[in-house]
Design a protein around this nucleic acid. Structure first.
Lengths: 196, 196
DNA sequence: CTTGCCAAACCAAGCGCTTGCTTGGTAGCT
DNA sequence: AGCTACCAAGCAAGCGCTTGGTTTGGCAAG
């Protein structure tokens, strides 16, 4: 049932199983339409028992988001460190983000994007700080590439356009289709560096 | 208060005012967190009175989506008809979509994207049919451009990437900033036809 | 100009149900 | 003994929607 999400090694604790189930349900039905009774039922406990692990339903949502941001920031950092040639580094970043969005953390990432406003403003700020670290990695890389003349337009805007392209992919990409994620990464990279 | 949305000439009927208020609230708080009491209060009537105009809360959401899809399909059709040169036509389509997403129908478009799953499956299908007409206009145009050698990659994938780019714009674009929508349209067009 | 009428628009009240969360207590492992 | 994990029961609040009745504006007959 809950194949994806995974996120990390935290998974076989009661808390980890709750987070996995919650991420799955949140993506399927949305945060508001998912009840604590739904989450409890999908791990086989009573609804009240959830509140021994999280102090509120919103806390579960925040925990899902925090985990996935941390995990994917690490992945991005590794991708960046693994390449030195400019264009290869850009391709590595795009691949990493595609992996985040349609691969192992697809469910939690979808929740991060679509259920953002279900967080209190305070928790939104905290998550935004974590997200800013992720974005700074991108901007550092893009600024470097821009400085080396790999592309011409404003790196800040280019980053926004890449975010849009990769963020929309889960809505149409077919994992069983003939187009691979690496192919797609190349096509996206070509939107930045040109078809040369 | 409710400056945007507009959508059409239907606006000064009770129904039109309810749709405007609903679109605004749905974008602000989401469909589930918006109560019929909220909507009623924002047009100055009692909550029960809403059900003389719509038979359910979900019907309000569907009406908002239907109106905005029709309106923006017309706009796209006009944009396409107004240009004959390939690249100019592409730019016209991008401009039209940006106008839809961050201009006059921004609120209703945001609702269309984020509250999609709040519709029943039956209404989702109906909306999807309307949306398909819109998408077919894009594909026709992109296929023509592709045939004329304006770009090389698969038109179908390119359309998906454009959808992502333009769809994300409302999340970062600053209408008071120095970057205009036309500038942005040019930058996006350049992602398709190259920087030549 | 008045009168009688009707449909659209609305109100006041509340029903029935679901929701997130609390409470007080128990089973089992260390 | 004490801790983690859990159950059974239920409370208070909020939800979409219904109901029965009242106001309002327009319009044709007298």
């Amino acid at each position: 049932m809950a194949e994806s999400l995974a996120i990390n090694g935290i998974d076989d604790s009661p808390r980890g199983r709750l987070l996995s189930a919650a991420a799955h349900l949140f993506r399927d039905k949305g945060f508001d339409r998912t009840t604590v009774r739904d989450i409890a039922a999908s791990v086989g406990i009573q609804s009240g028992s959830i509140f021994h692990h999280f102090k509120s339903k919103e806390d579960i949502l925040y925990a899902v988001m925090e985990e996935v941001i941390h995990f994917n920031t690490d992945r991005l950092r590794r991708a960046m460190a693994a390449e030195s040639r400019p264009e290869a580094q850009l391709r590595a970043l795009v691949r990493a983000e595609l992996q985040s969005n349609v691969g192992d953390t697809a469910e939690a990432m979808a929740v991060l994007v679509t259920e953002w406003r279900c967080l209190s403003e305070e928790k939104q700020s905290k998550a935004l700080e974590l997200r800013a670290i992720y974005e700074q990695l991108w901007l550092d890389a893009l600024n470097a590439l821009h400085g080396q003349g790999v592309f011409r337009d404003d790196p800040f805007i280019i980053r926004r356009l890449i975010t849009g392209m990769t963020g929309w992919v889960p809505n149409w990409f077919d994992r069983e289709g003939s187009l691979t994620l690496d192919d797609l990464a190349d096509i996206i990279v070509r939107r930045v560096v040109g078809e040369a």
